[in-house]
Amino acid sequence: MSAALSDLWPYLILVTVGFLPNEIWRVLGLVLARGLNEDSQVVMWSRAVATATLAGVIAKLLLFSSGSLAAIPLGVRLAAAAIGFVAFLLAKRSVFAGVAIGEVVLLAGGYLFAN
């Protein structure tokens, strides 16, 4: 492989393996959303599916954490998420409050119960 090509190789992978397989779903959404208005049933259903998919991502990230987060016991991760959520509800639905409290619980729990 020539020097120029091996320099370009990571960029070629970025476009073909990273960009295109990811972007295709956005473009499909653009094509399908043409002519739909925000109250239409397809859009309502899409919103429910998007929300549920996102919730699935959250559950997966909490249960099967990767990297350094995996070293924090599962009980601590779940307790931190639950306490953060309750703090959010108690603090007049403040996202900042919920995230801050949840992170403090994770930090404290991780410090005390690290694997």
Binding site: P21, N22, W25, G29, L36, S40, V49, T53, L54, V57
Partner: peptide, 22 residues
């Protein structure tokens, strides 16, 4: 890698459909 990325990106499809009409 391409397959794993495209599976992770499916969520973007209903998001775009719900967003653009707004």
């Amino acid at each position: 890698v391409a397959l794993a990325i495209t599976l992770s990106a499916i969520r973007l499809f209903p998001m775009v459909v719900a967003l653009l009409p707004l």
